[in-house]
Computed example of a mutant assay.
Amino acid sequence: MTPFLDTVFAALADPTRRAILSMLLEDDMAVTDVASAFPVSLAAVSKHLQVLAEAGLISQEKRGRITWCRLEPDALREAGAWMAGFGLMEAVDLDAFERFLEEELAEGDREAKAAS
């Protein structure tokens, strides 16, 4: 994984930050409106917003005296592509694999006995 993905997944690891991203799916929000949705201080929410901004998941823009937050959905594209790669692999049937190995080993034993 790239350092960018490490940063994105670290940002997504926190439930408060995931909740903030869900809120921003609806529309841009002022920092104070985001903070009012959580039972923590404005400073704590600001730290969460900073982590999300550093990961490129949100952008912040000052409009007058109000700082607005906007979701940056393209930032999840690389993480989504990385995770989608796991969906392309078929599930491994371990029982069938074990039977295959037993058959191959048994066949190898038969061939070795026939050769001697």
Rank of each mutant, 00 (worst) to 15 (best):
M1N: 01
M1G: 11
M1I: 07
T2K: 13
T2M: 02
P3V: 09
F4K: 15
F4A: 15
L5R: 10
L5G: 04
D6Q: 13
T7P: 00
V8I: 15
A11N: 01
L12K: 02
L12V: 05
A13G: 10
D14W: 01
D14N: 02
D14G: 09
D14E: 14
P15M: 00
P15D: 04
R17D: 04
R18T: 00
A19Y: 10
A19W: 02
A19N: 09
L21R: 07
L21S: 07
M23L: 15
L25C: 13
L25M: 13
L25E: 11
E26P: 00
E26W: 09
D27Y: 05
D28E: 14
D28S: 12
M29G: 03
M29R: 13
M29W: 01
M29F: 02
V31Y: 10
V31G: 01
T32N: 10
D33G: 01
V34N: 06
A35M: 13
A35R: 05
S36D: 10
A37Y: 00
P39S: 12
V40T: 10
S41H: 08
S41L: 04
L42C: 08
A43N: 13
K47N: 12
K47A: 14
K47R: 15
H48W: 01
H48A: 01
L49P: 01
Q50D: 08
Q50A: 13
V51S: 02
L52H: 00
L52Q: 00
E54D: 15
A55F: 05
G56D: 09
L57M: 12
I58A: 07
I58T: 07
S59F: 08
S59E: 15
S59N: 11
E61K: 14
E61W: 06
E61R: 11
R63Q: 09
R63D: 13
I66Q: 12
I66G: 03
I66C: 01
C69W: 00
R70A: 12
R70E: 03
E72T: 05
P73N: 04
D74F: 14
A75W: 04
A75R: 08
L76S: 04
L76G: 02
R77T: 06
E78H: 03
A79S: 08
G80H: 07
G80C: 06
G80L: 08
A81R: 13
W82S: 03
M83E: 05
M83G: 03
A84L: 13
A84N: 08
A84E: 10
G85K: 08
F86W: 11
F86Q: 05
F86A: 12
G87M: 15
G87I: 09
L88S: 08
E90W: 07
E90K: 15
A91T: 12
V92Y: 05
V92I: 15
V92C: 04
D93Q: 02
L94A: 12
D95C: 11
D95Q: 11
D95E: 06
A96C: 06
F97K: 11
F97Y: 10
F97V: 11
E98D: 13
E98R: 14
E98G: 08
R99D: 13
R99I: 09
F100Q: 14
E102R: 15
E102I: 12
E102H: 07
E103M: 05
A106L: 12
E107V: 00
E111I: 15
E111G: 00
A112I: 12
A112E: 05
A112D: 11
A112R: 14
A114W: 08
A115N: 01
S116N: 14
